[in-house]
């Protein structure tokens, strides 16, 4: 029975991916990609990775989908109606198909050749978990054992945001990105008024429960970002100006606190990003809270894009 469910999921995933490859219309492909992201979330639950499933559904399906749909709408508005679909060259397509098939085949063979018994770090991850005061081993990996990865990833997100902002035309630098549609439809306005309280509640719950159960900073941050984007898209609250000092402080605040606690580790616990044992859980939850705000802001601003309004004088 379960195998049947897995087979159905796999079949849908492959079919949707093929649809993305074959369809002529970009919007069509993006809608298929959003469905693909949600099904991928289901697939992750089948792989026993609930934390990943939450992240994939929120970021992979939801926010990436929004980003791509907005880009498509922008291109569609600006493009002269030249209806003719573009054709790839025949020989080139065949070579690309062959190359991709070889890569897929190689990966598939690698999957079939996985060593057995499989190497695993589950036992060491659980063995040391009491020292962190956490109950969710994935959170323990993210914020304690491999905290350096998470820290650097926050820096990557900020660098990407810098890159996006750097594409602002000179005369608009420091202004606000404009997300609002000219005439937001009524259902959007309604949702933007009713959903955010629930979204914020779910996000706070996810940060808190993430210490012991599936959930955590990324998932909560992406839900907060989604709620914020909803409000901005409906025009209920304008996007902040990118020159705002408060905004920049909040963006840098999460990673900065992380760095500060990391360096504090040299003084009190004998190494970078080492936590003193009695305080470990309090420090981790504190870092998570600050990071959630920074992640939510950064994800929202990444979708919003560079500013396209001149700053108010």
């Amino acid at each position: 029975m379960n195998l049947l469910l897995d087979l159905a999921l796999v079949a849908w995933l492959v079919v949707l991916a093929l649809h993305v490859a074959r369809t002529g219309d970009d919007r069509n492909a993006i809608v298929a990609f959003i469905a693909f992201g949600l099904l991928l979330g289901l697939a992750w639950t089948r792989l026993g990775a609930i934390d990943v499933a939450l992240t994939e559904a929120a970021i992979g399906g939801g926010i990436t989908g929004l980003l791509l749909l907005r880009a498509e709408a922008h291109l569609r508005r600006g493009r002269q109606a030249d209806g003719a679909p573009r054709q790839g060259g025949g020989a080139k397509t065949i070579v690309a198909a062959l190359a991709s098939a070889v890569v897929a085949l190689g990966l598939g063979l690698a999957v079939l050749a996985f060593p057995s018994p499989a190497p695993t770090l589950a036992q060491p991850a659980l063995a040391a978990i009491d020292a962190t005061g956490l109950g969710n081993p994935v959170t323990a990996v993210l914020l304690a054992y491999r905290a350096l990865d998470t820290l650097l990833e926050k820096v990557v997100v900020l660098l990407a945001l810098l890159g996006v902002w750097a594409l602002t035309p000179d005369n608009l630098w420091g202004g606000a990105p404009e997300l609002k549609e000219a005439n937001p439809p009524q259902p959007l306005l309604y949702l933007a008024r009713t959903l955010p309280p629930f979204g914020v509640l779910i996000a706070v719950y996810m940060v808190w429960v993430g210490a012991d159960a599936p959930g955590g900073t990324f998932q909560a941050g992406s839900i907060l970002a989604a709620m914020w984007l909803l409000v901005m898209l409906a025009g209920l609250s304008p996007a902040p100006e990118t020159r705002s000092r408060l905004l920049r402080l909040l963006l840098v605040g999460g990673p900065a606190l992380f760095f500060a606690i990391g360096f504090l580790g040299f003084a009190v616990a004998g190494g970078f990003l080492a936590y003193p044992k009695p305080l470990a859980k309090a420090l981790i939850v504190g870092i998570e809270a600050a990071l959630t705000v920074a992640i939510a802001l950064a994800l929202g601003l990444l979708v919003a894009g560079p500013s396209n309004k001149a700053p108010a004088r």
Binding site: T55, T64, A125, R146, E153, L161, L167, F218
Partner: peptide, 25 residues
């Protein structure tokens, strides 16, 4: 499942999104 690869995938998803946002811009 092994929590280490799972945590790395979560990190990877966020980084992939950042790269996509930069590419869209």
């Amino acid at each position: 499942g092994d929590p280490v690869p799972q945590a790395m995938v979560i990190t990877g998803i966020v980084v992939a999104f950042s790269a996509s946002a930069l590419a869209v811009a």
